[in-house]
Simulated assay, not measured.
Amino acid sequence: MPLNILIVDDHPMTVDSYVNLLSDEYFTTVEPFFNTSYNCETAYKKILQFKKQNKSLDFAIIDVSLPPYDQENISNGIDLSTLIRKTHPTCKILLLTMHTEAFIVKRVIEEIKPDGFISKSEVNFESFPAICKKILSEEIIYSDEILKSQKKLIQRNFDWGEYDSQILILISQGVKTIDISNHIPLSLSSIEKRKASIKNHFLLEKGGDIELINKVKQLGLL
């Protein structure tokens, strides 16, 4: 029985490297079948195609930062992983990222609960196959940078909900408050209340969006 693997990264050479590292020789009991994509749109369509054809998606290796698919409101690898969790709940998910900011890490862990979450700076040609093998053997693998980012939030005793994290991320990306409700399922009034609470925590209500983002970046939280 083949092992269906989805690899999504916006750098074709990286995708090819992952495929080569997870070659037929690596798998001794199953035959891997690789599906590759370089953006959210084609990955989105492949995921739904597997579901429509009643085929299992067994292992997904996804970069967090990807060209978006605006038509379906799929902005990045986090959104793709959410889709996979809904359509293929038994699929193992390995997320790779260059961004280990605390709020992003918190959002990924809370929403996706990935089987693997790795900073790209901590993986190489030798460790990558071993990480994949452990994940397929039911281990949960988070790299040191990801774990440090988690601890940073715990040490500062921040008790944010998932939407608070998303609001900060969207603001940092230049999304206007009035448009945030297009990205998360909250009303404008709820978003404004949460945003005011965050500003009160960091700025004591003194300052705007730029000051807020600068402050959380100074604290290493974004």
Rank of each mutant, 00 (worst) to 15 (best):
T42F: 14
E31F: 11
S37R: 00
F50W: 05
P68T: 01
F50T: 03
Y69A: 07
L96K: 08
K106S: 15
T29L: 15
P67H: 02
R107W: 05
N54T: 12
Y44A: 08
T97I: 08
G116T: 03
H99D: 15
F33N: 15
P68A: 00
D79Y: 06
V108G: 08
F117M: 06
E111Q: 15
T90F: 07
L66V: 04
L48T: 10
C91H: 06
T100V: 14
E101W: 08
I93C: 06
K92I: 03
I104T: 15
L95R: 09
Q49N: 11
S75Y: 04
I47F: 04
T87V: 07
A102F: 08
C40S: 15
F117P: 04
V108M: 04
I109R: 09
P32R: 09
C40A: 15
E111W: 10
G77W: 02
K120L: 06
K51V: 01
T29A: 14
T82C: 09
A102S: 14
L66E: 01
K51M: 06
L57Y: 02
K46Q: 11
T36L: 10
N39E: 04
K51G: 05
M98A: 11
K52H: 02
S75A: 14
G77C: 03
E31A: 11
K55D: 00
K51E: 07
F117D: 11
R85P: 00
F33H: 14
T90Q: 10
C91A: 11
D70P: 06
K46V: 10
F59W: 00
F50D: 02
K106M: 13
V30M: 12
L96I: 06
E101Q: 15
Q71S: 06
D58E: 03
P68K: 02
F34I: 13
K106H: 13
G77A: 04
F117Q: 01
L96Q: 06
A60H: 01
V64S: 00
K51Y: 10
N76C: 04
I62Q: 02
Y38L: 12
S65K: 07
D58N: 12
